[in-house]
Design a binder for these strands. Structure first.
Lengths: 199, 199
DNA sequence: GTCTATAGAACGATAGAC
DNA sequence: GTCTATCGTTCTATAGAC
């Protein structure tokens, strides 16, 4: 049952998709409502006919992006042919493909600039679309977490630590290895550490 | 040979110490020149008699903070009585004591808001005061790094990953363990990973 | 050396014509 | 539903009196 889209709905979608590009690239604080309007090809005040304020646009974008993230995590967790490590490698690769400048600039750095209500909502969306699906991976029987770390903590640490390596000043593994292998190496470092375990 | 401090030098020191508090707490972008002047008890334009611009104040602050960081790392590396892990635990505790909101908000998040010359200088200061001293630790013969990771990469990963855990939405180890033990646990997770190594 | 006053730019958001 | 015009705020930085 495909519903015909009104002109207003089309413009609203256009704004969301334009905002998605800019918010993912620059984060909430560095994105102006004029940036979004320019990409959408409308004037800045026209945006306010479709959304109450900048925060409402952002949270709708997080909702859209989050659904994509949940989808790629869900796909990855259920791939039975792959070893667990390769499955997680595919998951994290897909997450960072969605976030060209990392997850932190899109989610974590935006948090402080929202209203209290917006902060609560962002925390909820982050948990629902990023952390809970990843917790599903760490709950798999074939994944062995260290006993001090709970599955939902592991999900948060994984995203935050990978993001830190992703946007680091330096580059892991030297300049000779491909970015694909760097992702896999970063993942191994988060999972198994940067040092050899002592006896 | 103690030199008497002129009034101008005293005001300059006052500005730097006030700016240090605010920059460490909020980072470069969220700190206004009025914030700094208010804490110093002067008017905002008076600052411009002592510094060319906001960036110059920030880079002088990074220079001061950085010297303190190099100092606590140097002290920690040379403590021969402690086991290497306890030594690194003491080092990272002291680094994060200097940065009440983490290293990232002070260094990494400021980078994008500086001029190209300022970015080069910040990168230089970060390497000189944070990474190089920590590389000294990872070069110690009793520290066993994973073979894929070079000592200077380890230094960068350590600071970035600890910072990510420090400012994470969630809290490692549950609410029952003290923040002191959380620091030690976070350090272990960076060094040895969050998962059990496979056979 | 520090002040008042203000320039000049960017921002989020609103008013009101069409 | 979209536009032009503009309000009110905040920001870095400068001009010029004292």
């Amino acid at each position: 049952m495909v519903q015909e889209q009104s002109r207003s709905e089309k413009t609203r979608e256009l704004i969301i998709n334009s905002a998605r590009k800019v918010f993912l690239e620059k984060g909430y604080a560095e994105t102006s409502t004029r940036n979004i309007a320019d990409v959408a090809g409308i004037t800045q005040p026209a945006m306010y006919h479709h959304f109450n304020d900048k925060e409402a646009v952002y949270l709708e974008v997080v909702n859209r992006v989050g659904k994509d993230v949940r989808e790629v995590i869900g796909q990855g967790v259920l791939k039975p042919r792959l070893q667990p490590l390769n499955r997680l490698d595919e998951i994290t690769k897909n997450i960072f493909d969605i976030h060209p400048k990392g997850v932190g600039i899109f989610i974590h750095e935006s948090y402080a600039h929202l209203s209290p209500a917006g902060q609560r909502k962002l925390g909820m969306l982050y948990r629902m679309y990023y952390l809970d699906p990843l917790t599903g991976y760490f709950n798999l029987p074939e994944v062995n977490l260290r006993k001090e770390v709970l599955p939902d903590e592991a999900a948060d640490i994984l995203i935050s630590s990978l993001n830190a390596m992703f946007s680091s000043f330096y580059r892991v593994g030297g300049s000779s290895i491909s970015s694909r292998d760097k992702g896999k190496l970063s993942l191994k470092l988060v999972l198994f550490g940067i040092a050899e375990e002592q006896d």
